[in-house]
């Protein structure tokens, strides 16, 4: 666990030591503000429901930008050798980098609480859907980052890691939904169940369902396990 902590802290701090971290955060916040201002209409109920239902689409492009350097940069610079030659386990290194990425993501989300404050100052919003929406976006972000982290273990090119993650996320979020309407109802249900944004839509509506939480956590775990095996496999070659 201690290795997880120190890898996480080093990685988290490095997001702020490079311009990439600041650029990604600025981009995310600017786009979020644009989505927020577009979702608030005079005379409409004071909710973030419209905001949350569009917000996930931003993650599609922002999460891969956060995760793309996690291992790709070590593979490019050769620092992966110092990590792998140390007694630390591959799982703890992967875990540390994941915690750092989630930490950075939560740091990116924190300023968006201003939107809630703005909403509160204008009216009397219902807190339940807002909390559910934040929980949903956090779980979705964790899954996207875990998928991106797995992609970054497979290439020393950050661009390839970004594009690879984007392809997987588009496949899961858009193509699965489209495919579900063209197959039988049973297969369609299974495909819809595998799509993160369909599950996240329930959170945006204020529904917190255990099965959705279990889905996001277990899918993240699977992606992290793939990342760990991918790193371990470097020792087998």
């Amino acid at each position: 666990m201690r290795v997880v902590g120190s890898v996480a802290w080093r990685e988290y701090a490095s997001f702020f030591r490079t311009s990439l971290g600041w650029v990604v955060m600025a981009l995310f916040l600017a786009l979020s503000a644009a989505v927020f201002s577009a979702s608030i209409q005079p005379g409409e109920p004071a909710t973030l429901r419209g905001f949350f239902s569009v917000w996930w689409a931003l993650l599609l492009f922002v999460a891969p930008a956060v995760s793309m350097r996690l291992f790709s940069d070590d593979l490019r610079s050769g620092t992966i050798e110092t990590l792998l030659a140390s007694p630390a386990s591959e799982a703890s290194i992967v875990g540390g980098k994941f915690v750092a990425a989630v930490g950075f993501f939560l740091t990116m989300l924190a300023p968006t609480l201003v939107f809630v404050v703005v909403l509160e100052s204008l009216s009397d919003p219902d807190w339940g859907p807002i909390l559910a929406g934040y929980l949903g976006i956090t779980l979705m972000g964790m899954l996207y980052l875990a998928i991106g982290l797995a992609a970054s273990t497979m290439t020393s090119s950050q661009t390839l890691a970004y594009l690879g993650t984007l392809v997987v996320l588009i496949l899961a979020d858009i193509l699965l939904v489209q495919a579900s309407s063209r197959v039988g109802p049973r297969v369609g249900q299974v495909l819809l169940g595998m799509s993160p944004n369909v599950r996240a839509a329930d959170f945006a509506r204020g529904l917190i369902e255990t099965r959705h939480i279990v889905f996001f956590l277990s899918a993240s775990f699977v992606a992290l396990a793939i990342a760990t095996v991918s790193i371990q496999s470097r020792r087998w070659r």
Binding site: S6, R10, S14, R17, T18, G78, E81, A85, S86, P87
Partner: peptide, 29 residues
């Protein structure tokens, strides 16, 4: 049991020397 210096000495260039060494130490427990 091994202290390893890879060829071309890859380092985390954005870190300060003592922070980098603390980090390497933490990997070794």
């Amino acid at each position: 049991l091994i202290g390893y210096l890879p060829e071309s000495t890859p380092l985390y260039t954005e870190m300060r020397v003592q922070d980098y060494l603390r980090f390497r130490g933490s990997l070794c427990g």
